[in-house]
């Protein structure tokens, strides 16, 4: 039981991260019908710049967090403006190659800036781990869980309550019709990129204290985030978060009870199974296509 709980906690923590990354994929897909293959690299940049800001520049964690999220969001917008909007024929294969190109480019840049070695930073708050029924729960894990759920709630409100959120959604359904009623669809796509990559930065910033971030962490995290999004139904907000938790817990159980070599294979096997049997996701209902 104690062992189970320990794996469960670690699964939840990782799951929350996958969930936030999945949210980034989902919200971009929902607003633009596009999958950004460089999403994981924005997570990497978020994590590494968090380390630099807090450790090298000694900026307080809370300020560093907002600077990182805002800065990476801005970087995402620059990327959209320079490399996505300029595409003449936005077919999937062209967009895939461009975002893959961006991914490799950012990873190379990350390597030049931060070097090949992994970095580290202390947790946000210096409490000792909690003891719950004999299992250890890191305080940073609580931060991660709280922030993940907060982010999802904010996004939910953004889509339901704000005009911009609704407008963004309208663009996704029908660009031309949205344009006819006066919604600036180009602005919306730009904003969606900013939000999505900013969300990636959130994920990066909060795992920086627990993962030893390095320049090459993005691909695996991106892949797992995508897997989580597929589990929950690509485009579904709560589905993405739940998909993240599901993947995190399954992965932790696989590592704990079967074999540690299974860790990275779990996500991929799940992804293949989902793609094969239920491409609409296993959490969201079949009839609900994109909500």
């Amino acid at each position: 039981m104690q062992e189970f709980l320990q794996y469960f906690f670690s699964g939840l923590t990782n799951g929350a991260i996958y969930g936030i990354i999945a949210l980034g994929f989902s919200m971009l897909y929902r607003s633009t019908d596009l999958i950004n293959f460089s999403h994981g690299e924005f997570v990497m940049i978020g994590a590494l710049s968090m380390v630099t800001l807090t450790m090298t520049l000694k900026i307080p964690v809370i300020w560093a967090f907002f600077i990182v999220v805002f800065g990476v969001g801005l970087l995402g917008m620059v990327f959209e403006r320079l490399a996505i909007r300029t595409v003449k024929r936005p077919e999937p294969i062209v967009l895939i190659i461009i975002t893959v190109g961006a991914s490799i480019f950012l990873r190379g840049a990350g390597m030049l800036v931060w070097g090949k070695n992994a970095q580290s930073m202390p947790p946000f708050t210096p409490h000792p781990p909690l003891d719950i029924a004999g299992a250890r729960l890191l305080v940073q894990s609580i931060w991660i869980l709280v922030i993940a759920i907060l982010i999802a709630a904010c996004l939910h409100l953004f889509y339901r309550r704000t005009l911009t959120g609704k407008a963004m959604y309208a663009c996704a359904i029908n660009k031309q019709a949205a344009w006819l009623v006066g919604i600036p669809s180009k602005m919306m796509i730009l904003l969606a990129f900013g939000l999505s990559t900013g969300m990636g930065a959130v994920a990066g910033a909060i795992i920086a204290p627990v993962t030893m971030p390095a320049y090459d962490m993005g691909a695996m995290l991106g892949l797992k985030g995508f897997c989580a999004a597929m589990l929950g139904g690509l485009g579904s907000l709560w589905g993405s978060l739940l998909g993240g938790f599901l993947l995190g817990v399954l992965e932790a159980m696989g590592v704990g009870f079967v074999s540690s070599g299974l860790k990275d294979a779990t996500a991929f096997l799940l992804l293949l199974l989902v793609l094969y049997f239920r491409p609409q996701g296993i959490i969201s209902a079949a009839s609900v296509k994109r909500f």
Binding site: A83, T86, V87, K88, V94, I97, I98, V100, G101, A102, S103, I104, F105, L106, R107, G108, A109, M111, L112
Partner: peptide, 14 residues
């Protein structure tokens, strides 16, 4: 190497 490949992929595609 990586930055060059990335840049080339993006530029050629655009």
């Amino acid at each position: 190497e990586m930055m060059i490949y990335g840049l080339v992929l993006m530029l050629v595609m655009i």
